[in-house]
Design a protein around this nucleic acid. Structure first.
Length: 203
DNA sequence: GAGGAGATCGTCT
DNA sequence: GACGATCTCCTCT
């Protein structure tokens, strides 16, 4: 099945709708040699501008300006002095919303993911070992070689960007919501979305 | 399996 | 000058 990038209209909605809709979709990375890395999204978090936990809450700054632009672009930030995290920008221009990708199920290019993570995998990796590749926002960013200087602000609706999202028709069993992870503000909001029972979610 | 410390630097006050 | 949308490693149980 050909993987067609999801259109900009998919992202031009409020973050909760996008966070929910992204579950079960594929993230596709094509590197310079044309090799594919593909993961199925199993966990997301929604962040909108009026949300104290969001980077956009304080208003536009050089760091977060991508979130204030049009939907369908990547917002990549650097945190804790060593980690990158991958978001998709949603909502309409002028309103800064984003969805953080928190966990994926590795689908294709597993060897390349392991190499990017600096992990040695056996020929027949266990579920636990596959989990360690992409079950966490910084882990999946590293597995897909996502870095701020190259990937922040790229257009994720174009195949030529080398990073986009696609629908392979897979259905999602059941979506549940919980509180978000690793934040200190608005901790009570249940704005984390995940596929119930999926072994690849974080924590 | 749970819990805590340390790593390490860009960003904003 | 403080702290973060995190991860790994180590210790203790």
């Amino acid at each position: 099945m050909p993987l067609i990038p999801l259109p900009r209209s998919f992202y031009a909605r409020e973050p909760h709708a996008v966070a929910r809709a992204l579950l079960g979709k594929l993230m596709v990375r094509v590197d310079g040699r044309g090799r594919l890395r593909v993961g199925r999204i199993v966990e997301t978090e929604a962040y909108h501008q009026s949300d104290p936990a969001s980077h956009s809450y304080i208003g536009q700054t050089p760091r977060n300006q991508i979130m204030f632009g049009p939907a369908g672009y990547a917002y990549v930030y650097f945190t804790y002095g060593m980690h990158y995290c991958m978001n998709v920008v949603c909502q309409q221009e002028g309103e800064a919303g984003a969805v953080l990708l928190r966990a994926m199920e590795p689908v294709e290019g597993i060897a390349a993911m392991a190499k990017a993570r600096g992990i040695e995998l056996p020929l027949q990796p266990t579920t636990k070992q596959l989990r360690s590749l992409t079950s966490g926002p910084a882990r999946l960013a590293e597995a897909f070689s996502i870095i701020r200087t190259r990937d922040n602000g790229i257009d994720i609706t174009r195949k030529t960007s080398g990073l986009y999202f696609a629908d392979d028709g897979a259905s999602v069993s059941k979506i549940i919501t919980t509180t978000r992870i690793g934040i200190t503000k608005a901790v009570e909001k249940k704005w984390r979305y995940l596929i119930e029972g999926n072994p690849f979610v974080s924590k």
